[in-house]
């Protein structure tokens, strides 16, 4: 064990951590922006038939190992942070889309029927009834994706995406266990942080009437 190497590794943490967080946040934001509407559209009666097809495509993306996706984006998008984010988005889509669909389907049809029967427009039913009621399930999907993206994000360093993966790769190349421990350790801490943080958001956004039921 070499304490100086620890300090060296730790001194690089703020920078790499910042990049890692930015990478995760952007990928998550993009993934939510794509998946949520996909989930909503696929649960509308007119597009229901498309559902199986789209979900299968997303399933295939999900089945790809993270490393393979990262590697495959390189020839298309080149090196750097952007292709890394692209790869992470692809990985983050499925859990969010799947949970959005599950959440929306899980809304009691009687509640929708009553809302519609009172004269609420389709849009109003979606935004005032369906999405709020599906929110806990959707957020659980976002949480799954977040944790996933944090861990796959460490692979971004292979295509020069930066982040905590840089520390791990340096450690692997130089056989410096200290760098690996610091990089992996902070990666794990970040994942836990996202998981806890989002579960707090989930708790906060759960409709008040629900917490009573539970």
């Amino acid at each position: 064990m070499n304490w100086e190497r620890y300090l060296d590794a730790l001194s690089r943490v703020p920078h790499e951590l910042a990049i890692h967080i930015i990478m995760v946040l952007i990928s998550l934001a993009v993934a939510i922006a794509v998946s949520l509407p996909i989930g909503v559209i696929l649960t509308r009666p007119r597009f229901r038939k498309l559902g199986a097809l789209v979900m299968n495509i997303l399933n295939i993306f999900q089945a790809f190992p993270g490393m393979a996706i990262i590697a495959l984006t390189m020839p298309v998008l080149g090196l750097g942070l952007k292709p890394a984010i692209g790869a992470l988005v692809v990985q983050a889509l499925l859990p969010i889309a799947r949970n959005t669909i599950a959440g929306l389907y899980g809304v009691d049809p009687n509640i929708k029927e009553a809302a519609q029967g009172m004269g609420m427009s389709e849009k109003k039913v979606l935004f005032e009834v369906e999405l709020p009621l599906a929110m806990p399930v959707i957020l659980a999907g976002i949480r799954t994706s977040a944790v996933y993206v944090v861990s796959v994000g460490t692979l971004a360093a292979y295509i020069d995406g930066g982040g905590l993966g840089n520390l791990i790769i340096t450690g692997l190349n130089m056989l410096w266990a200290e760098f690996i421990i610091v990089g992996a350790g902070f990666g794990a801490l970040l994942a836990i942080f996202f998981d806890r943080g989002l579960s707090y958001v989930e708790y906060k956004l759960t409709p008040p009437g629900f917490s009573i039921i539970k």
Partner: peptide, 21 residues
């Protein structure tokens, strides 16, 4: 249809109260 329904009271067996309101 939405206008029509606003002018007609509708009660169903399962009631369908919005649980989050």
């Amino acid at each position: 249809p939405d206008r029509l329904r606003m002018g007609i009271g509708y009660v169903i067996q399962q009631i369908g109260l919005l649980p989050h309101r």
